[in-house]
């Protein structure tokens, strides 16, 4: 059975069509990047998966079940730092399990330690979020979502506010965590290189209303393992340039810089 399916999903705000009828199949365990210009509607699509906004028409199915209200199965990582400032790093991670009844206190504690180690924050367990770097705060948010037991991670430009070095490091980290934990990820970004480096598959969007302009299977061309060497190779550049061309074509419509 298909895993995550968008069926003729649309979104209309008043008179503004944000998402045109949209169809997509995402297999389990895939990291798919939504690449497109700012404000094109890709974030709206992702929020609809999370149940944070209802589609105007159409439906999103998870294993054949129509998705509605938000729940633990789909976790969000926002662009802004969403770690709660009044909780320590460890408490923030534990918050992901706060409403879970399937785990004992001891199991929860063990899970906290596991996910802290997974995102490399064991040494910062008792720090306050305001005292750690932006990159670390995003790792807290990722660990919290994993602790919640989410099978789908919805990430809205999570590394957008970070400098290039931290960004690259976290991209590698995310790829590793995703492979280890076998999670399905929808990663929204407007950064071409980020999409090419991280994703199994890149969906390039047009300007609003969101439509699929192109679809690029990265894993078929570069393989599933991502390293810094790969990033410096010609295969990667070829793919990046291809994506860049698509993105430029969306910009030229509006700004007339064809």
């Amino acid at each position: 059975m298909s895993y995550l399916v968008f069926e003729q999903v649309t979104k209309v705000y008043g008179a503004v069509e944000v998402v045109a009828p949209f169809d997509l199949d995402v297999p389990e365990g895939e990291l798919v990047a939504f690449l497109g210009p700012s404000g094109c509607g890709k974030t709206t699509l992702m929020r609809m998966v999370g149940g944070l906004e209802p589609p105007s028409s159409g439906q999103i199915l998870l294993r054949g079940e129509r998705l509605k209200k938000p729940d633990r199965r789909r976790g969000m990582v926002f662009q802004s730092y969403s770690a709660f400032p009044w909780l320590t790093v460890a408490q923030n991670v534990a918050y992901g399990m706060r409403y879970r009844r399937d785990l004992s206190a001891a199991e929860k504690e063990e899970q906290v330690q596991h996910f802290l180690a997974l995102v490399g924050l064991t040494d910062f367990a008792s720090e306050w979020p305001n005292r750690i770097s932006g990159g670390m705060r995003q790792r807290v948010a990722i660990a919290r979502t994993l602790a919640a037991g989410s099978e789908i991670l919805l990430m809205d430009e999570p590394f957008g506010a970070l400098d290039a070095q931290r960004r690259e490091f976290l991209q590698l980290e995310l790829r590793r965590i995703q492979q280890e934990e076998g999670k399905t990820v929808i990663f929204v970004t407007h950064d071409v290189e980020e999409a090419a480096f991280l994703a199994d598959r890149v969906i390039v969007f047009t300007r609003r209303p969101a439509r699929i302009l192109a679809e690029v299977d990265v894993t078929a061309r570069l393989g599933a393992s991502r390293t810094l060497e790969l990033r410096e190779g010609t295969d990667f550049f070829g793919l990046r340039n291809e994506l860049l061309h698509y993105v430029r074509s969306t910009a030229s419509e509006e700004e007339g810089t064809a």
Binding site: Y99, R100, R144, A148
Partner: peptide, 23 residues
Amino acid sequence: VPVEFHETAMTVGAPWWRRLTDV
């Protein structure tokens, strides 16, 4: 209160009244 805080709570399974007390 930042809307992300509420949405985070919703996506980890918090019912609305727990969002008032916990967020």
